[in-house]
């Protein structure tokens, strides 16, 4: 039970459905940016997406090959561990189900890796079943570099640091391995509805 803050009332938004706001989050209309380092600028000609690790042969897609795959447009709410939530964001990209369709693996975990060296980990079952995408457009426009373009992972049911910016591939793993923020005190799984912000939550 938190101590009461004397004379605090708060500024609650009345236009947002409280059932859509995880505990401790507030709704913003902006799109804040959180990154640990400089924004990489990757030319599309040298971009590729690779699935590797616990798999017989790594598989790769060029930018053009990714664009040729069936795409989906997803409208979803996103929740950042820094407390903001943004409702009804619209993304376009390729479902990870499509990319993992032909992959035979015994792995139970994936580590997404990105330009700039960023990594994040999640259970494979959170990356499949219509829950995760490689997104390359936001609001119908190409994804801006500061928001993770040319392409980022989109895993909206977990805190947004799991939606790795500048993603370049997935490492399939038999054992879980903490990613970048997960190694710096953030929660290993990161479910916003259970408010799993930091290690130990």
């Amino acid at each position: 039970m938190s101590p009461l803050s004397r004379a605090f009332r708060g500024r609650r938004r009345s236009d947002a459905d409280p059932a859509r706001i995880p505990p401790g989050q507030y709704v913003t209309d902006d799109f804040p940016v959180l990154s640990a380092g400089p924004t990489p600028h990757r030319p599309l000609e040298t971009w590729s997406f690779t699935i590797q690790g616990s798999i017989d042969e790594p598989v790769s897609w060029t930018w053009e090959q990714l664009q040729a795959l069936p795409s989906e447009t997803i409208t979803t709410d996103i929740h950042c561990v820094t407390k903001w939530s943004k409702l009804d964001t619209v993304w376009t990209g390729v479902s990870l189900d499509t990319l993992l369709d032909d992959v035979e693996t015994s792995a139970e975990y994936v580590t997404a890796f990105s330009d700039g060296g960023y990594t994040t980990n999640l259970p494979l079952e959170d990356a499949t079943g219509g829950k995760a995408w490689i997104a390359y457009a936001f609001d119908g426009e190409p994804l801006a570099p500061e928001h993770g373009g040319p392409a980022r992972l989109l895993v909206p049911h977990l805190y947004f640091w799991k939606s790795a910016k500048w993603v370049r591939g997935l490492e399939l793993r038999n054992e879980d391995e903490p990613g970048f923020w997960e190694s710096y005190g953030y929660h290993n799984y990161g479910d916003p509805w259970r408010e799993q912000r930091y290690a130990g939550d």
């Binding site: 913003t28 902006d30 799109f31 804040p32 940016v33 959180l34 990154s35 640990a36 380092g37 400089p38 924004t39 990489p40 600028h41 820094t82 903001w84 700039g116 060296g117 500061e146």
Partner: peptide, 27 residues
């Protein structure tokens, strides 16, 4: 932060030695 970090990378600084913290508009 975008301007500063991009400029430093453009000047030849190692991106891995540049740590950033960004305040969003509502941050």
């Amino acid at each position: 932060v975008e301007v500063a970090a991009n400029a430093l990378v453009g000047l030849g600084h190692d991106p891995g030695r540049i740590r950033t913290e960004r305040f969003g508009p509502t941050g």
